[in-house]
Computed example of a mutant assay.
Amino acid sequence: MLLLTARMSCSLDSSSTCSSKKWLESLWSIPKAELFVDSMYSEVVTSRLLTSFLKDLEKKMNTPAMKNTTSLPETFGSNNSTCNAPETTYNAALIAIYSIVLVGGSAGAVSMTWKMKHDGKTVTSTAVINLMLAHILFLLTVPFRLSYYILDEWKFGEIFCRLVSAMIHAHMYLCFLFYVAIVIMRIFSFFQEKTMQFYRPWHATATSLVVWSLVLFTVFPLYLKLYGISKTYNEKQCFQFQDELKEEPVKYMNYFSVTVVFMTICALLAVQMYILMRLANKHEGTFLKQQQFGAQVKTLLFLLIMILCFLPYLGFRFFYIKQIVANPCSLILHAINEIFLALTAMSCFDVLTFLVAAH
Rank of each mutant, 00 (worst) to 15 (best):
1 M>P: 02
8 M>K: 15
13 D>C: 12
16 S>L: 14
20 S>C: 12
21 K>M: 11
21 K>P: 06
25 E>M: 12
26 S>I: 01
33 A>V: 06
39 S>T: 06
46 T>N: 10
48 R>M: 15
50 L>G: 02
71 S>Y: 11
77 G>N: 13
78 S>A: 08
87 E>I: 13
88 T>D: 03
94 L>S: 08
94 L>D: 08
100 I>S: 10
101 V>A: 09
105 G>L: 05
109 A>F: 05
120 G>I: 10
132 M>Y: 00
135 H>S: 15
136 I>W: 02
137 L>I: 06
139 L>V: 03
139 L>P: 06
148 Y>W: 00
149 Y>M: 04
157 G>Q: 00
181 A>N: 02
188 F>C: 04
192 Q>Y: 13
199 Y>P: 06
200 R>A: 11
201 P>Y: 05
204 A>E: 01
206 A>H: 01
206 A>C: 13
217 F>L: 14
223 Y>R: 03
230 S>P: 07
231 K>W: 14
237 Q>Y: 10
238 C>S: 02
244 E>N: 00
247 E>S: 12
251 K>Y: 09
252 Y>L: 12
257 S>W: 00
263 M>P: 06
270 A>D: 01
275 I>E: 03
278 R>E: 02
286 T>Q: 11
288 L>A: 10
293 F>K: 07
294 G>W: 09
298 K>F: 12
303 L>S: 01
320 Y>F: 08
323 Q>K: 04
323 Q>D: 03
325 V>D: 06
329 C>V: 02
332 I>V: 13
332 I>T: 14
342 A>Q: 04
345 A>K: 04
345 A>Q: 01
351 V>A: 14
355 L>A: 03
357 A>D: 06
